[in-house]
Amino acid sequence: MRVRGLAFFPNFLLREVVIMFTTAASIFLLASLFPASLLEPANPFETPKPIFPEWYFLYVYGFLKFWTWDIGPLKAKTLGIIISMVLFPLLLFLVPFIDRNPEVNLKRRPIAVLLGVITVAAVLFFTIYGIIFE
């Protein structure tokens, strides 16, 4: 059988290995230049300021600060949590079942691309909002 394209082993794997070594090297370099920190021991009676969650939770944190509107009997805080912690992950799970367009070409799926760009932009926006809004 004649195969089109590059054989996974060894041709493609060799390229992967180069990228893997580069990744490992950057981790080792970052670890040497910027060691992991250790602050004062935990003290339940003294809240430090400012206090941030890990960067990948900042979009949730930022969104909760951003959303200040009650809707009907639902309080703003509850709504913020429902949207960012329940609806957003649920929406992620459902992506392949919502987008039924079989086309994979970027130019022939403008709505999906637009929604994707908006989502990425929103996550970035709320991440920054979480940092600068105190």
Binding site: L38, A42, P53, L64, K77, I81, M85
Partner: peptide, 22 residues
């Protein structure tokens, strides 16, 4: 796990947010 100030208080916030789910 490091049980320092950041660890303790970031987890406090995280658990508060999770507890807010209806």
């Amino acid at each position: 796990l490091p049980w320092d100030q950041l660890a303790y208080w970031a987890t406090t916030i995280g658990i508060q947010i999770n507890s807010g789910i209806p």
